[in-house]
Each structure stands twice: as structure tokens, then as C-alpha cells.
């Protein structure tokens, strides 16, 4: 029984085009779920529906068996961490964190205890009388998190909370967020466009595109087994080959080239695409006799540090391949490529 479910949510600003279309999502208690996608995919809109800033034109938002669709924002008791942090510039750190408690008319002493304790947790006790503009980016971020957590929210909603931090701090803060979330066991929805950040802390990820969820699964499954071309591209698959299914695991590419692909996916349509990561294609000897071999010639070589990347011209178009530092090829070299049958994903 999920804690939270969005059922057939439709969102439209002008009554004609839908920003979200029949969106469904279920989240279990204690999970950290990420909404991942490029800008404009509807991930922030989804978060704002949950938060109550946007009222959907259709569908329902259920939380613990209660219909939350029309409950006003200030009665939901969700903690929200905004992209800009949205700290109140006219209030001290202490008063920022105490804001939500004051709204609940909790006694002064109790407020002081609760605020002190949460500031202690996020390691900000010494800065409680400072104003937001006197804090560093990372400190502001922690104030925003403390302010959202101190009201003991039913849900924690994070809207690209790390995007304003520099790379080093981002790594540190995402570990801290994960730690706090585990510690408090709070169900969390995290919006981001950064795939690595998202995979590193999420229990489950919903990859979104054009107002719909393309795949909702664990980070591991999404990374290794994307279900659509969009998801595949988003998680780093760069080579796509048009295929038609002949029988079982036999496929034909354009020009009649035959491929064997071991897929656990049900093949329902005749024309399909196979995709493979640059890391998974191997450059092999001219006289190798493996299956799934194609001829190519090196077009462009770039150096990535841990490897070289080649753009290779083949009958199937240009393929991107990462090759080791031990065996370096130059432009114009003719080579053979091996595409392991277990590494080709059908989308």
C-alpha cells in the first residue's frame, strides 16, 4: 500500500495543452524518489502539484487514504526545499527555522527547543542569529533543509536543491541529504536534471519527458536496462541502430547486416531500435570471428583522460566508441567493431 499516489493527474495552464497528461505515480513510505528529466519535462510541475501550488484540472492526489487534491498548501504540512532556498531575508536563521512552528502556534519554549535541536543536527547552532545574506551557499542550503524538516512534515519535497552549489559542495550535500533522510525516515520527492546526482541518492527514479513518466524503476535498472529511446539517451546510450526482428533473437539492420541480441524484453513490434553504450562496443582484430561484427573507419579521435573516444564511420552510420589507452588508433584507420549481444538493449 503506497503512502502517496498520483492518479491520472492532468495539468493545463491554458485549458488546451496539457503540461502533465494522465500522470500516475506511487511512492512508498520512507522512500526517496527522484523525478529526473530535462527542463520542461514536467518534473517541477509534478512536484508543485504534490506541494499544492498547482491544482490539477483532472485526477487525484491521495496521501494515506486521504484525498489531498484540494487541500490548501498551508494545511498540507509538507517540508519544501526550494531551488533558490527561499530563505526569508528579513529573518535570522533562528526565525527562519522557527517560522513554520510559529504558524502552528507552538509555545515559545518548545519552539526554542525544536529549533536548537534541528540547528544542531545540521551543524548550524553557532550561526542562529545571522541573516541569510551573511551565510555561504552551503549554509543557506542547510537552513532551508532545517526549516523544512523542523515542522515534522509528512513529505519532504526538494526542488533542484543542489543546483546553486559548486561541484564539490554538491557532492558533500547530497550525502548529507541522504543521511538526514535515512535518519528521519522521511518520505522524499527529489527533483533534478542531473542524472548522476539523482542515481546516487534515490531509491527509485521516475524519468520524465514531455509531461509523462517514461520509466519508473530503481536507478540500477534504469541505468542498465532503459525501456525507451528517450531514457536510453538520457542515461548515456549514444548509438542507436534501426532493426527489424526476423525471429527469436535474430535481427536485421539496414543493409541486411545480421545481429544476435539477447533481450529479456517482449518484442511486440517488428521495427525496433537497438542501443549500446560507447563503453560496451569493442574494437577488435581484423580476423576475429565473433558474431555482431561490423566494419568501420576512424573519423575523429578525442581524448577523455581514462580513455579515447572515437567517432567511427560504418555502414550503419557513425558510432561512438570508447577505446582503451593501450591501443590507440588514428584517423583513417580501418577497424572492426564487436557489439556484444548481451549489451545491446532494445527500445
Amino acid at each position: 500500500m503506497p503512502l502517496l499516489s498520483l492518479k491520472n493527474i492532468d495539468v493545463s495552464y491554458d485549458g488546451k495543452t496539457n503540461i502533465l497528461e494522465k500522470l500516475n505515480l506511487s511512492i512508498n513510505k520512507g522512500e526517496l524518489v527522484s523525478l529526473l528529466g530535462p527542463s520542461g519535462c514536467g518534473k517541477t510541475t509534478t512536484l508543485r502539484v504534490i506541494a499544492g501550488f498547482i491544482e490539477p484540472v483532472g485526477g487525484q492526489f491521495i496521501l494515506e487514504d486521504q484525498n489531498f487534491t484540494k487541500i490548501p498548501v498551508h494545511k498540507r504540512n509538507f517540508g519544501i526545499v526550494f531551488q533558490s532556498y527561499a530563505l526569508f531575508p528579513h529573518l535570522t536563521v533562528f526565525d527562519n527555522v522557527a517560522f513554520g512552528l510559529k504558524m502552528k502556534k507552538i509555545s515559545k519554549d518548545k519552539i526554542k527547543d525544536l529549533v536548537d535541536s534541528i540547528l544542531n543536527t545540521v551543524d548550524l547552532s553557532s550561526l542562529s542569529q545571522r541573516y541569510p545574506k551573511e551565510l555561504s551557499g552551503g549554509q543557506r542550503q542547510r537552513v532551508a533543509i532545517a526549516r523544512a524538516l523542523v515542522i515534522e512534515p509528512k513529505l519532504l519535497l526538494l526542488d533542484e536543491p543542489l543546483s546553486n552549489l559548486d561541484a564539490k559542495l554538491r557532492l558533500k550535500m547530497r550525502v548529507e541529504i541522504k543521511k538526514l533522510q535515512r535518519q528521519m525516515g522521511i518520505t522524499t520527492v527529489f527533483v533534478t536534471h542531473d542524472q548522476e546526482e539523482c542515481f546516487s541518492i534515490s531509491d527509485k527514479v521516475a524519468v520524465m519527458n514531455a509531461g509523462e513518466i517514461e520509466q519508473f524503476d530503481t536507478p540500477e535498472n534504469i541505468y542498465s536496462n532503459p525501456s525507451t529511446e528517450f531514457v536510453a539517451r538520457f542515461v548515456g546510450f549514444e548509438n542507436f541502430i534501426d532493426l527489424s526482428n526476423i525471429s527469436g533473437n535474430e535481427f536485421h539492420a539496414k543493409g541486411g547486416k545480421k545481429f544476435t541480441i539477447n533481450s529479456n524484453r517482449d518484442i511486440t513490434k517488428e521495427n525496433i531500435k537497438g542501443t549500446i553504450r560507447p563503453d560496451d562496443i569493442e574494437i577488435v582484430d581484423e580476423n576475429s570471428n565473433k558474431e555482431n561484427l561490423i566494419d568501420g573507419s576512424i573519423d575523429v579521435r578525442t581524448y577523455l583522460g581514462k580513455s579515447y573516444q572515437y567517432n567511427i564511420k560504418t555502414d550503419l552510420g557513425t558510432l561512438v566508441v570508447n577505446g582503451s589507452n593501450n591501443n590507440v588508433y588514428s584517423q583513417g584507420d580501418n577497424i572492426k567493431l564487436y557489439l556484444p549481444s548481451s549489451k545491446i538493449i532494445l527500445v
Binding site: F53, F78, A86, G100
Partner: peptide, 15 residues
């Protein structure tokens, strides 16, 4: 910032 108003609302303040 519009988010300041939203932040206040999310913390339990009416409009």
C-alpha cells in the same frame, strides 16, 4: 521572489 511566498505557505501560513 515568488518562492518566498510559497515557502511561507508550505510552512503553514495562510495567504
Amino acid at each position: 521572489e515568488g518562492e518566498l511566498f510559497e515557502a511561507a505557505e508550505s510552512l503553514g501560513a495562510s495567504k
